[in-house]
């Protein structure tokens, strides 16, 4: 999944999972935790969604604070990078 595809799938996932925001209102810099669009109780499903989308396991205990701040940050942190 490319970063563009991940971004689109993530937006849809957040809207569907949260139930607190519409697709039009969710911007890529909307602070989804600060505005409680998602809460800590959504992390399990979000991590599993990202693992499936990227094909890579995520060690939650090693994540830096703020990694789930918004769509931009999540995509930058987890999108598969092309081999250099």
């Amino acid at each position: 999944m490319t970063e563009i595809e991940l971004r689109e799938a993530l937006r849809e996932w957040i809207v569907r999972t949260s139930g607190r925001i519409g697709r039009e209102a969710l911007r890529d810099d909307t602070p989804i935790l600060e505005q409680r669009i998602l809460t800590s109780l959504h992390v399990l499903e979000l991590v599993l969604f990202l693992e499936q989308a990227t094909g890579r396991p995520i060690d939650v205990q090693r994540l830096r604070p703020g990694v789930f701040r918004d769509v931009d940050t999540i995509c930058r942190s987890f999108a598969a990078r092309p081999p250099s």
Binding site: L33, R36, T39, S40, V43, L44, V47, L48, I58, D59, V60, Q61, L63, F68
Partner: peptide, 10 residues
């Protein structure tokens, strides 16, 4: 199995 939960302050 690793924990997949994180707690955010609120």
């Amino acid at each position: 199995y690793p924990d997949r939960q994180l707690a955010f302050p609120r």
